[in-house]
Nucleic acid binder design. Structure first.
Length: 271
DNA sequence: CGCCAGGTTGTCG
DNA sequence: CGACAACATGGC
């Protein structure tokens, strides 16, 4: 199947801007797992993507996953000029989409992200899936169900090498499996309340909670503040606050994150 | 071979 | 509340 995307869409930036952990480059294309399927994608011409093994019925699924129907151009216009040098980051990050990932996967992967490098996060996630996720056509493994992880003890996760985060994962899985965390509720609740609810999970603080809301529940006003965003806000947008970024603050955050990671020498470690 | 990583927790002043 | 060590592991 051929998937058509807006001409500004960048699959490369979208997959590797730090929002997801299950995609890799493969030859000229990309391979990854999403929506309980393994996908192989390669560009067949500008904005035309060949999706291996996909059928017409998968189009909607993929358009939703890549968030292709949303007006990102409009968001860029709305946010440009709102803060001194934000335009630079917007231009540099053009083409990034916020994926519609599964909430439980977002919860687990961002619990694992704490005090950790992205390459290593990917490794831990991969082992977690291989050990506890369903085998998929294509050779990969799906992300595990919450109920599967909920039945484990910390020791069962030793081969995953998640370190001190293992207990956090299990606590999250149990609270999801028991219904104490209800995704559809969190999708519509006021943002701050949803954040508080997520922070009831051990190992989930304000930053991880915001990531779950943004990447797992597509709440574009959620604003994860990690070390890079703090540096960027301090040295790049010193007079701008999260409120100035409005209801798409999370998208702006992604642009800033991507920009600052690729210009790391411009952002000092202190202050 | 140290430094540090898309942080959070517990403890102490 | 703010500061700050500890946390488990390994990529670079």
């Amino acid at each position: 199947m051929i998937l058509h995307t807006p001409s500004s869409f960048s699959l490369e930036k979208t997959l590797f801007c730090g929002q997801c952990f299950r995609w890799t480059k493969e030859g000229e294309g990309y391979r990854g797992i999403a929506c309980h399927r393994e996908w192989r994608i390669r560009e067949e011409g500008h904005s035309k993507w060949y999706i291996e093994g996909a059928e017409e019925g998968d189009r909607q699924l993929l358009e939703h996953y890549f968030d292709l129907r949303r007006d990102y151009e409009g968001m860029m216009k709305e946010l440009s000029g709102k803060a001194e040098r934000l335009d630079e980051a917007i231009e540099y990050s053009k083409g990034i989409r916020i994926l519609n990932q599964e909430p439980f996967e977002a919860l687990c992967t961002f619990i694992l992200s704490q005090n950790n490098h992205i390459p290593r996060i990917k490794g831990i996630v991969e082992r977690l899936c291989q050990h506890f996720g369903k085998a998929l056509d294509g050779g990969g493994h799906d992300f595990p169900e919450a109920s599967r992880l909920a039945g484990l003890e910390k020791g069962d996760l030793t081969p995953i090498r998640a370190g001190f985060r293992a207990g956090y994962l299990i606590d999250g899985a149990r609270k999801v499996a028991s219904g104490e965390i209800e995704w559809e509720e969190l999708r519509t609740m006021p943002l701050e309340g949803a954040k508080e609810r997520l922070m009831g999970i051990r190992g989930v603080g304000p930053k991880v909670a915001a990531c779950v809301l943004l990447y797992g529940l597509h709440r574009l006003d959620a604003f994860p503040e990690d070390v890079w965003i703090k540096r960027a806000m301090n040295t790049f947008l010193p007079t701008t606050t999260r409120e100035d970024l409005g209801s798409y603050a999370g998208v702006a955050q992604q642009w800033l994150y991507h920009y600052s990671r690729d210009h790391r020498n411009e952002f000092k470690k202190s202050s």
